[in-house]
């Protein structure tokens, strides 16, 4: 029982990341009809927003300490961040330690701007082209973005720790009447799950309860008719692209303490997120979220030693296996709409 609860928890945070990326993918596909293979790269860029802010906050001035030597035997240059110098040691180090949550504020405008630039500069030229062209161009764009990040930040993962208040883990076992240390879970992963739930809720509320969202939903259902009513749907869809980029970006920011960011991290999520979108149903936002959590939890269960001892390697194929079964039994996915990608 304890092992099952632990894997459910594991699946929830993995599912949160899948759901957030898949949500953005579905938004773009549902509004613009574009299959965006660069969406994983947006997640990666978000994580690097956290890295960038951390680097900005740790920009330092050097003071030579003649009493200590560096590796070449020269007097050691001691680095002190300007933030520490300006705000004092406690406050300055506190700001640096909270760089990941602060990076959300940094990432939102940056990612919206990147989203606008991508959509206006490149992707709008491919709206009427076949999906194969869209996949090729966005996949190429993802590789370009990866290489740019690698050029500036290197290929190695960059440690981006969570604030000290969220290090360590919470003992769920004690809460549920189990022995101590049986079901423990890192605080930051709980924060990530809660954060994802809030973001998903905000996106749904935005689409459901605002006039802008209503028009976008109408456009997703029938773009031509909305256009005939004199509404500039293209402009709204561009804004939705920026919003989807921001969702992917903040998902990446908050994921940075879980997996140290590296230039390839977007690709690691991209393929699985597409499977999530297809399983959830192309164009279905609730489907994307449902499939994200479902597949995240299934993947965690498949990693259990008890299951792997019966079915070796099942953890590597479970998502694809489930996808095949669902698509055979429900060809439009769990919550797919009729007519989407069927013409």
């Amino acid at each position: 029982m304890d092992a099952i609860l632990l894997q459910v928890l594991n699946g929830l945070d993995k599912g949160s990341a899948y759901a957030l990326i898949a949500l953005g993918l579905t938004l773009i596909f549902g509004t613009l009809g574009v299959v965006n293979f660069a969406h994983g790269a947006l997640f990666m860029l978000g994580a690097f927003c956290a890295v960038t802010l951390q680097k900005i906050l740790t920009i330092s001035f050097e003071v030579v300490d003649p009493t200590r030597l560096d590796f070449l035997g020269n007097p050691l240059k001691v680095k002190t961040p300007y933030v520490v110098s300006w705000f004092g040691e406690a406050a300055g180090n506190g700001i640096i330690a909270w760089s990941v949550p602060l990076a959300i504020l940094f990432a939102i405008p940056v990612m919206i701007a990147i989203g606008f630039a991508m959509e206006r500069g490149l992707i709008k030229h491919f709206y009427k082209r076949p999906h194969a062209d869209q996949i090729l161009v966005t996949f190429g764009l993802a590789i370009v973005l990866q290489e740019i990040i690698k050029y500036f930040f290197g290929a190695n993962p960059i440690p981006t720790p969570a604030p000290p208040a969220f290090t360590g883990s919470f003992d769920f076992g004690v809460l549920l009447g189990f022995d101590p240390n049986v079901i423990i879970y890192p605080y930051w992963r709980l924060v990530y799950f809660a954060f994802s739930a809030v973001i998903i809720g905000c996106v749904f509320a935005f689409l459901q309860f605002t006039t802008f969202g209503m028009v976008v939903r109408a456009g997703m259902a029938d773009r031509e008719t909305v256009g005939l009513l004199g509404i500039n749907i293209d402009k709204r869809f561009t804004i939705m692209f920026g919003l989807a980029a921001a969702v992917a970006g903040v998902a990446g920011v908050m994921y940075a303490p879980i997996n140290s960011p590296n230039y390839h991290m977007g690709m690691d999520f991209l393929v699985l997120s597409f499977v999530v979108v297809v399983v959830g149903g192309m164009g279905s936002l609730p489907g994307a979220v449902l499939a994200g959590f479902l597949l995240g939890i299934l993947e965690s269960f498949a990693s259990m030693n008890e299951i792997k001892s019966i079915l070796p390697g099942i953890d590597q194929i479970i998502i694809y296996l489930v996808a095949i079964i669902i698509l055979l039994t429900r060809p439009r996915g769990l919550m797919g709409r009729k007519g989407v990608m069927e013409d």
Binding site: L6, N10, G11, K14, N181, I183, E299, M304
Partner: peptide
């Protein structure tokens, strides 16, 4: 995480 979690028990 799903490989580390079983270590606990």
């Amino acid at each position: 995480s799903s490989y580390i979690a079983p270590v606990l028990n």
